[in-house]
Amino acid sequence: MIKTINDKRWKLAMTTYGYARCSTDENKQDINRQKRELKALGCVDEKNIYWEYESGTKVNRVELNKLLDQVKAGDILITTEVSRITRSTKQLCEIIEKVKEKQLKLVIGGFIVDCSKGELDAMTDGMLKMMGVFAEMERNMISERVKSGMANALAKGKCIGRPTTTINNLPPNFIKHYPKYRSNQINKSELAKICGVSRQTIHKYINVYEKD
């Protein structure tokens, strides 16, 4: 069950922000479920929800970095679970330090971490880091299963890996919004965000589309 923030002290916060993340693009994973949960948890203003399609192990994530730069003392930062923020215990520790430094209130699902005074009690700190350990372990187990599956497929002579990007398998969302990019209504970064992919991927899509 999703818990909401009803305590009066939370309502005094200046701004509530949300962060959502999926590892793969919108053709494989729907990030809207996380957005709905973030709204239910208290981040009702969608413009304050930062989201992206990136690996949870990637350190320099554009939207997460923007969010951490944007928040200020007293603000609330909400995410649905630790693994959405990161699947790296080391990075989680760095984020916790940032939260304490900026005196934020961090909400992870129903788990509330109040660092508004720049401090974190030992019990909460330990529980938070334990959640990070489990998130990283889950990611490593998934990676091991994938590698095992790939090795098994190779042994059976199957072709593995991503299919070559061609004009025929470009995402419909890219085809839909490409004319706006072409007419300078949006730039490459904006097109990448709309499509939920990196600038590098958008660059590849554009090359394929314009070539063909």
Rank of each mutant, 00 (worst) to 15 (best):
K8C: 11
E97W: 01
D75N: 03
K39L: 04
E54A: 12
L12G: 09
K204A: 11
L170I: 15
L154N: 11
D121Q: 05
F111S: 06
D7M: 06
A135K: 00
K28W: 03
G110F: 00
D45E: 15
T80V: 09
G18F: 12
K180C: 03
A73G: 09
I49F: 10
L41F: 09
E37A: 09
T166N: 07
V107N: 00
Q200C: 13
A135I: 08
Q70N: 07
K129A: 01
I5H: 07
N173C: 12
S83E: 02
L68C: 04
G196E: 12
S183M: 06
D121R: 02
G110H: 00
G126T: 13
A122D: 13
I49H: 06
I160V: 10
T124W: 04
K28L: 10
G149E: 13
G161Q: 04
I5S: 14
E37P: 00
Y205E: 06
K35P: 06
K66H: 15
E63I: 00
K176C: 03
V146W: 10
L68A: 03
D121E: 07
I167D: 05
Y50D: 00
K100R: 11
A40L: 08
I186P: 01
I96Q: 00
E190I: 04
K35F: 15
T124S: 06
A73V: 04
N152Y: 15
R33Y: 10
A192T: 12
K193V: 12
I5Q: 10
Y17L: 10
D69V: 11
